[in-house]
């Protein structure tokens, strides 16, 4: 079953991490990433630039607005695509990721359509 894990966290906290702290979190996350990849469970994963780099298009008025769509306490900062047995396993993985990457929340959303597209980046 394909799931997305959407990563929400308080941007001002994450942006306050020093490079070393950031590197430490990433190194710890990479342990889990490597395992999931080896097990063939990890699909595309991404970390978004800060919301200050975002631009939003409001479709009906064709209105372009600087900033993210939603002004929230926690921001969408990244996401994983996972091929897993179901919610139970998803939550287990999310807990493990959460130990490495504190604060905020993970939203687990089953995928309805997955188009791998071309290999970019």
């Amino acid at each position: 079953m394909l799931y997305a894990i959407l990563c929400y966290n308080a941007e001002d906290v994450v942006m306050s991490w020093s490079q070393e702290e950031d590197d430490a979190v990433m190194a710890q996350l990479n342990v889990t990433h490597a395992r999931l990849e080896a097990e063939g469970k990890l699909g595309p994963s991404l970390r978004l630039m800060p919301t200050t780099a975002a631009t939003t298009l409001f479709k009906s008025q064709d209105l372009v607005v600087d900033g993210p769509y939603a002004e929230t306490k926690e921001q969408l900062l990244g996401l994983y695509i996972l091929d897993i047995s179901g919610l139970e396993e998803g939550l287990e993985i999310a807990r493990e990721l959460g130990k490495a990457n504190p604060g905020g929340a993970y939203e687990l959303r089953p995928l309805r359509l997955y188009l791998p597209g071309a290999s970019v980046g």
Partner: peptide, 14 residues
């Protein structure tokens, strides 16, 4: 979740 580094970052972020 509440390790000192995270609290530190949360305090300076806030």
């Amino acid at each position: 979740m509440t390790d000192p580094a995270w609290i530190d970052a949360a305090l300076s972020g806030a």
